[in-house]
Design a protein around this nucleic acid. Structure first.
Lengths: 162, 162
DNA sequence: TTTTCATTCATACTTAAGTATGATTTGCAG
DNA sequence: CTGCAAATCATACTTAAGTATGAATGAAAA
């Protein structure tokens, strides 16, 4: 795809370049004639004359080349490592249902994983400490763990919390 | 740094190119002289003669250009997303030192994050429950937290544990 | 309507966690 | 050698966590 466009571009450019080149040749020939017959051309030796032509057309050649030659683009692919943390958390609702964790129990679980104490959880959810204890105990049974630290661990494994 | 080498490269190439160019000019002049005096050059009109020289030096110019023209280096920076998983864990030793966490305290921290109780940690490390408590209390101070759940959280944030 | 279940809370208890303080040993650096 | 930090352990205590049991309520399903 990329290559194709490039080739088309070259042809378009070449046509124009050839035209300009032709014109340049004509102009030079004309200029030389004029110089030859009107001024000092006869005083110039053949070598100098040819040298000038050579110089001019070398210049023309270089100029033409700059127009025609496709710049070789050396594509250096520099791979930069962008560290992205695996924060692509999506709640695993299947596990939620399978374990039969209720919405309120989940609330407690979330706050638990934030490192809050039962009392702090109670305050946040406007419920008593005892209720939090009940929820957490139920959670431990459902998650098949013994402690809150294990509950948080387990819940993360099961994609219940981030 | 990169730029510097490029420039040096160009000069080296130019010196050689100029040399070759000079030689080409000399050779052509010589060839023309030979042709002129030995064969048919007098039959050729001035225009054709100049035309040939022009063509030749245009070619030389183009050739020179191909040598001189700097290659365009296109640097494509490709960002490769690297998702860091738990397996890619590298211990942040700077934080370890900064916080002054001792090796033994770190052992306790690790087992803590595995969800073990103080008693279980004590059994694993062959130390008393009291010692574990001492270590954990020290950890809480150093990590500036109040509970083990928070300690585990904090330690993960600081890349102390996976 | 009855049942089921989530949610709430209470009481009473056990166990674990965390705090405070002090003491001993050991290896290492000044 | 001396001092210091790490590691160990103990005692005593407070607080938090977890267990067991029971009960009230209210909404939704059978």
């Amino acid at each position: 795809m990329y290559h194709f466009f490039q080739i088309t571009g070259i042809f378009t450019r070449m046509k124009r370049t050839i035209l300009i080149y032709g014109l340049a040749l004509a102009v030079l020939t004309f200029v030389l004639k004029v110089l030859e017959y009107k001024f000092f051309i006869r005083d110039l030796s053949m070598e100098v004359y040819i040298g000038l032509v050579a110089l001019f057309f070398t210049a023309v050649g270089i100029w033409v080349a700059t127009k025609i030659i496709q710049r070789k683009t050396e594509t250096v692919i520099k791979e930069v490592e962008v560290v992205v943390r695996a924060e692509d958390f999506v709640l695993n609702e299947k596990e939620m249902e399978r374990l039969g964790i209720s919405p309120r129990e989940y609330d407690v679980l979330e706050l638990m994983s934030d490192g809050l104490s039962n009392q702090e959880i109670a305050d946040k959810l406007f419920i008593s400490l005892n209720t939090v204890k009940t929820h957490s105990t139920n959670l431990y049974v459902k998650l098949d763990v013994k402690r809150r630290t294990q509950a948080v661990q387990r819940a993360k494994e099961l994609q219940l919390i981030p």
